[in-house]
Amino acid sequence: MSKYHQKDSEIYYDDTDIPKNKLSLTNSEELHEIEASLLEDGYELFISELDQNTIFNEDYFISLHRRTFESLYDWAGLYRTEDMFKGDSVFCVGRAVKAESKKIFERIKGENYFKEFDTISKAEFAKKLALIKSDIITLHPFYELNGRITRLFFDLIVIYNGYQPIDYSNYTPDDYINASIDCVKYADETFMEKIILDGLIKQ
């Protein structure tokens, strides 16, 4: 069984966890380097586009994935329909992704798309962000690159509200993975909230 998917998935090359791509690359290290470069370019582009008209809704979230990775993947910006898991952590079932995403972004809408949070305390801001981030991590809406796009989405939100991109350097990659596992397996965003809180720095 491969990393994130069933072995008969049409998204991946047979018997691998390497997603089919427009460059026909089958070397995971080379593919990761290209993904990292595209993400870096995406950060520059989306930060430059931030203004009062930016709405952090579902269309915007999807556009981050599509616009960042469409040069590499045909499925960029498309919600998955397959069930996915990692280890013993099971993400939202594929058939429910669209409906559950609508619910999450309705809650974001209820928070006025996180556009008026430059005046609340950092602790309260981190708590609100962690609740929604936990839901999106559990949703795992795309076939791949969920973590990177989710971090980009929340970085753009905090930048809009006068913070620097969230600084994760106080924690190891394993810490972040464990916090994400807590979100998925136990619906517990406590650790993720702490990571976000410690990484919020005013510009």
Rank of each mutant, 00 (worst) to 15 (best):
S2E: 10
D8I: 12
S9L: 10
E10F: 09
E10N: 14
I11A: 13
Y12I: 04
D14Y: 00
D15M: 13
T16G: 03
S24A: 07
E30R: 12
H32Q: 13
H32P: 05
L39G: 11
L39C: 07
E40A: 15
G42L: 11
G42I: 08
E44T: 09
I47D: 10
E49G: 00
E49P: 02
E49Q: 11
L50G: 11
L50V: 05
D51E: 03
Q52K: 15
T54G: 07
F56L: 09
F56P: 09
N57W: 04
E58S: 09
D59N: 15
I62A: 09
R67G: 07
F69Y: 14
L72C: 01
W75Y: 13
W75M: 10
T81V: 13
D83E: 11
S89M: 12
R95D: 11
S101T: 14
K102C: 04
I104K: 10
I104D: 08
F105P: 00
F105V: 03
R107Y: 04
K109T: 00
E111M: 09
F114K: 06
F117D: 04
T119V: 00
E124C: 01
F125G: 01
L129H: 07
K133C: 01
S134N: 11
D135F: 01
T138P: 04
T138G: 04
T138W: 02
L139D: 12
F142E: 08
E144D: 15
L145K: 15
R148F: 02
R148P: 02
R151M: 12
I157D: 02
I159T: 09
Y163S: 06
Q164N: 15
Q164V: 04
I166V: 15
S169R: 12
S169F: 02
N170P: 00
P173V: 07
P173N: 12
N178G: 05
N178E: 14
A179F: 00
I181W: 08
C183Y: 00
A187V: 05
E189C: 07
I195Q: 00
L200A: 04
I201K: 15
